[in-house]
């Protein structure tokens, strides 16, 4: 063995990672939105689930999402190294080895699926397994590097959590679960393409065929507007189908109005400075929009119980 080879071998035997680095591998910020949407799916589903089992189910979905994140970082370490936005992640920064991240992701994947399956039902467990597979194999390994439609199809992975929450309670997939899925699925392209417009150079340098890199700025702006228009009736549909009430309708109408305005702004903007601002506004605003939609569903579901609780403390119900 050469001297350099021996050095490398010796160094890799000693992990340099801190527990916090493994937490960072789980993409906690992405995980929080996944947890929230899964929680809403679980809470608004008809039927009963013990609160402790519900908490275990949400925990399993969170760990499954974290496992996907870790496996994504393992496979994408080469891309992450070149992109400014991701260069500080644990693997490109040299704090965690790719092998450690892979093992960590695989173990967490297996554990999360097993726990969810045992705690709730195996359809929910199977959906979680499929979501991890879809995100890691279909999106990360295949679509991300090969087509400009990567996030359109890959967006399905992020859209599954509310469906998993729903299935954890009901044991079956129904129209409501599919609508929740569609909302996130159609929300994903305008959200990520707004970021891709701003980070175009980063993606181009890393060789990731994002839509602005492959088809250019103009096409991306048009696509953002088109997807936002298609998203609008889907966002309103929970009200038509009766599982979204007045609060949801208000959030959906106001939020969709903002989304359409931001999308139009991106479509119409000319100069670069104001254009970046419009893209960032769409990127951040769309997160808020999705949060507001799901929060409305949650509040409507919880409101009778909350009202009872408030009444009891205020002495109305005595």
């Amino acid at each position: 063995m050469s001297e350099a080879g021996a050095d490398i071998r010796r160094e890799t035997l000693i992990s340099n990672a801190d527990p916090g680095d493994f937490l960072a591998l789980m993409k906690p910020r992405v995980m929080s939105l996944v947890v929230f949407t899964a929680l809403v799916g679980l809470m608004i589903a008809p039927g009963h689930i013990h609160p402790v089992i519900a908490a275990v189910a949400i925990f399993a979905v969170a760990v499954g999402a974290g496992a996907s994140g870790a496996l994504n970082m393992w496979y994408d370490a080469d891309i992450d190294r070149v992109m400014r936005r991701t260069a500080g992640r644990p693997i490109p920064a040299g704090r965690v080895t790719a092998g450690e991240a892979k093992a960590f992701g695989l173990i967490l994947s297996a554990m999360s699926v097993m726990v969810l399956g045992l705690a709730t039902n195996w359809l929910a467990g199977g959906l979680l397994a499929f979501t991890i597979f879809f995100y890691v194999v279909i999106y990360t390994m295949w679509l991300k590097r090969s087509t400009a439609q990567n996030i359109v199809i890959g967006g399905a992975a992020g859209a599954f959590p509310p469906m998993i929450g729903w299935v954890a309670v009901t044991g079956s997939i129904s129209l409501e679960a599919i609508i929740l899925f569609l909302i996130i699925f159609l929300w994903t392209p305008p959200h990520f393409w707004a970021l891709a417009l701003v980070k175009n150079e980063d993606y181009a340098r890393a060789g990731v065929p994002m839509l602005p890199v492959v088809s250019g700025d103009r096409t991306t702006r048009t696509q953002i507007l088109l997807y936002t228009i298609i998203l609008t009736p889907v966002v309103l549909s929970p009200y038509w189908f009766g599982f979204g009430g007045a609060l949801y309708l208000a959030s959906a109408v106001i939020g969709s109005g903002f989304m359409l305005w931001w999308a139009w702004d991106i479509f119409a903007k000319g100069d670069e400075a104001s254009d970046r601002k419009a893209c960032w506004r769409m990127f951040g605003g769309s997160i808020l929009f999705l949060f507001a939609l799901f929060a409305s569903l949650l509040i409507e579901r919880l409101s009778p119980a909350l009202f009872q609780l408030v009444s009891r403390f205020a002495g109305f119900g005595a």
Partner: peptide, 11 residues
Amino acid sequence: EKARQKRRSRA
């Protein structure tokens, strides 16, 4: 490195 190893073991 020892401190990190200890923190990892604890985790």
